[in-house]
Structures are given as structure tokens and as C-alpha cells.
Nucleic acid binder design. Structure first.
Length: 303
DNA sequence: AGTTGTGTTGAAGA
DNA sequence: ATCTTCAACACAAC
């Protein structure tokens, strides 16, 4: 589940590996992933463009492209959202056609890229240095959009995003203002991309455990001390998770196909029945909407 | 072999 | 405004 730390890890990897490369071609076998332009038109529109900048906004990967020598004008933007099980890999693959619309994609490189989770490749961008960017996505929920920089940047999915939790300018006062404006449960508020961008099920559980706040507590009922603890926990947990290269309890891997090590540092998420790291009480799991909240009923009981 | 859990986003209905 | 449910899709674990 790529959330802020996982997406940041991918973006950092891509910046190291593929900046300055020109895209020479595209292959895909699931046209539905490509939302803009029409899947059949993607290759024609992206071929020859050069990768000049790679950024993250919320859980979105933003790959800035240019067809110019001067990389300041005439920019294009490739937006990739990995959703539940998508992750970008940098490698080399061989495509074999099995039947009219079925393909066998296999890694030409030995090692992590051969792992099962990295072998649901449905989209490949070919680069002029011989490397390829592959999108592995078991459940095929990921989405890819290409357009002019202006066009993509003005899409509601970027426009409506809340502030970046790790932004230096995102002060406690701003945080307090937007959180206390909500009366929903705090876990749901933290996961709302239009309130704050980048936090999902994993890190909302982790942040609330660290801040000792019950996931069901109404956001507008939080005390100033709780808000301070929450703000601090949000920053600390997300920074730590970026440093540890994300969580791989499920499909997420970095661009080399390797696991993130926040998995072992987890405080609450998917630790049901395991002892709380503060008080040894078994971690509980309860449903909130359609998803699970993991928490310590002793440390996080103020509701 | 059928059911449940997994989670992001968007849409629909209450 | 806020909520609940569902749908996109596929697999592992029970």
C-alpha cells in the first residue's frame, strides 16, 4: 500500500536512476490503467520526451517531461498513482505473446525482480539507456495520466489535495485549524487526502498509536495537548518511515524490488494480538468504515 | 470450494 | 455535511 513514505522512496530511487533519460517506447497489456490520453495514443505522445524532474504530491508520482533542449518550456507531465498494489520497478524485461491478448513478462535480471510480487508487470516505459520502468500491479487499480504540465496539474486529484505533512511551512497552527474543523473520527480525517495528503491506513494507525489517541475520537474534540502530540507523531513517524524505505506487509517494494524495513518497526498496523510496545496489552483491531484500525485499548482509550 | 481480508479512490444513495 | 456501501480486481488464508 504505497502511502507517503513508500511513494517518496520510489521517487527518490527514480531520481537516482532515470533522471535525464529519454523515453523511447511503451508497452502495456491492461489499457484500463491508462486514463489519459487514450491507451493507444500514449506511446506516440510520450516517445522522445526527456525526463527532467520527478516529484511526489500526496501519493502521486509526478514525472516531468520535456521535448525541448531548454528544460523550462513546453513541459509535459506523467502522473502515476499506484493505488493498492502498484509499484514502479527499474529493470529489464522480456515480453512473450501467449495468445491474442495475453503476454508473459519475465525479468531479464536475477534477484529481487524475480519475486512473485514484482511479476505483475502491465506497463513498461523503455528508456534510451536500455533500462526500463515497469509497473507491477496485481490488482490493476493503478492509474497513469499523461498531458501537458498545465493540464495535469489542474486536475482535481492534484488540485484538491491537502497540505504536505512534511512541508516546512505546514505549521502546528495550520494543522490544528484544519483538523479541528472536522467532526469525523480522527483516523478518517488523517486518511482524507483533501485534509492532509499522503496518509493512508498504515500510517494513520502508526501515528495515532504514537500520539496515544483513539482512532474513533472526533477530530474536533481533541485537546490542544493531543493535537500537539498528533502533529509531532505525524512528522516523526513519516520521517522515520521514509528513512526505513516504507512498509512491505503486502505488495509494496522499492524500484529494485526490495522490501521496506518499516515493516519490522511497526507499532500498531497489522499487529493484532501482538503486545503493545509500550504496555504489553495485545493490540486490537476494529472496523472503521470498510477498513481496519489497529490500536492499543489501554494506551489509546481517551475517546 | 466458498468466504473473508487486503486498501485507494470515486461514485452513488441515505 | 457525513455516513455507508459498492465497484474496479486478484490473490492468500481460512
Amino acid at each position: 500500500m504505497p502511502e507517503l513514505p513508500e511513494v517518496q522512496t520510489i521517487v527518490d530511487d527514480l531520481n537516482k536512476k532515470i533522471l535525464g533519460q529519454r523515453i523511447t517506447g511503451v508497452w502495456f497489456d491492461v489499457p484500463n490503467l491508462i486514463k489519459k490520453p487514450k491507451a493507444q495514443a500514449l506511446e506516440k505522445q510520450i516517445k522522445g520526451l526527456k525526463i527532467i524532474e520527478i516529484k511526489r504530491r500526496g501519493k502521486n508520482i509526478l514525472i516531468y517531461l520535456t521535448n525541448n533542449q531548454q528544460p523550462t518550456t513546453n513541459n509535459y507531465l506523467l502522473l502515476i498513482h499506484q493505488k493498492l498494489t502498484g509499484h514502479l520497478l527499474v529493470g529489464k524485461w522480456k515480453i512473450e505473446k501467449i495468445s491474442s491478448s495475453r503476454y508473459q513478462v519475465s525479468s531479464l535480471l536475477k534477484g529481487f525482480l524475480e519475486d512473485k510480487v514484482n511479476n505483475y508487470i502491465h506497463l513498461i516505459f523503455y528508456l534510451d539507456n536500455g533500462w526500463q520502468i515497469g509497473l507491477s500491479d496485481l490488482r490493476k487499480f493503478a492509474k497513469v495520466l499523461l498531458g501537458s504540465r498545465k493540464e495535469i496539474e489542474s486536475l482535481p486529484e492534484l488540485k484538491k489535495l491537502g497540505p504536505e505533512p512534511l512541508d516546512k511551512n505546514f505549521s502546528f497552527e495550520k494543522f490544528k485549524k484544519i483538523i479541528t474543523a472536522e467532526k469525523r473520527k480522527i483516523k478518517q480525517v488523517l486518511m482524507d487526502q483533501e485534509v492532509i495528503a499522503g496518509i493512508g491506513n498504515i500510517y494513520s494507525d502508526e501515528i495515532l498509536w504514537q500520539a496515544k489517541i483513539h482512532p474513533f475520537k472526533s477530530a474536533n474534540k481533541l485537546t490542544t495537548n493531543e493535537l500537539k502530540a498528533l502533529y509531532k507523531a505525524m512528522r516523526e513517524i513519516l520521517k522515520k518511515a521514509v528513512k526505513l524505505r516504507g512498509t512491505s506487509t503486502s505488495d509494496y517494494r522499492d524500484t529494485a524490488g526490495q522490501l521496506g524495513s518499516y515493516t519490522e518497526a511497526r507499532l500498531a498496523y497489522q499487529r493484532e494480538g501482538e503486545p503493545c510496545r509500550r504496555c504489553k496489552t495485545p493490540i486490537k483491531r476494529i472496523k472503521i468504515g470498510e477498513r481496519s484500525a489497529h490500536f492499543c485499548s489501554k494506551c489509546q482509550k481517551n475517546i
